[in-house]
Amino acid sequence: MGILEVKGVGKRFGGLQALGDVNLSVQENTVHAIIGPNGAGKSTLLNCFVGKLIPDTGSVMFDGQSLLGRTPYEITQMGVSRVFQTPEIFGDLNVMENMMIPCFAKRDGSFRMHAFESVAEETDLVEKAEQMLIDVNMIDKRHMHASSMSRGDKRRLEMAMCLVQDPKLLLLDEPTAGMARADTNNTIDLLKEIKEKRDITMAIIEHDMHVVFSLADRITVLAQGTPLVEDSPDKIKDHPKVREAYLGETQQ
């Protein structure tokens, strides 16, 4: 039984059947990649995991509990973190403040009226946030305004904000989309490091085959809203069906 169990998920937008009948099982402590050509329904599927969309049919179970009908913040509190295609961080705040917010959310839940405490006096959380920044090599940027950083650093910060909450499942939505080669390689290294150092399950949606094949333990290929194959990276590489769906041709 996987940590994330998707059974018979379907989603229709008007006349478009975005997801047909998706069955998927993400095993604990693995990196599971979901790939597929544009319009295959990858993002729709991801949005069904985090409470942004509610599927018309099927079930999404995480850690034995259904995710359907829950809001994004409830799902995050259950231990599912999400990294976005373009890094979503608190641009108006500095790096350290960005890190403190997930720390508070993890400790205090989705709301707490702590209006007369001081952020600086929460030494435990400050330490935790700083340790995380050291882990991702950003401690020297702790006072920097988050919006003034490079895209690679923003991605790193976003990742750190997710990881500091010790999520059971980390969802990544095209984490290297639109990145320069160097930044992409940086991100791959960071993800590899995270995978080695922590017991974490990741589900990753990606276009870039280089990223997928250097990270994934298991790959599901999605085409026109239904899973085509699910297998290990080595087998996927040479699978004729995948080549056909992905490249639109069969190479001789």
Binding site: Q77, F90, I101, A105, R112, V119
Partner: peptide
């Protein structure tokens, strides 16, 4: 306060705030 920090976070990025739990 942490409360004040959350309020500034709301102004900055509600999406991220939601996905921070």
């Amino acid at each position: 306060s942490p409360f004040g920090l959350m309020l500034r976070a709301i102004k900055s990025n509600q999406q991220r705030l939601n996905y921070t739990g």
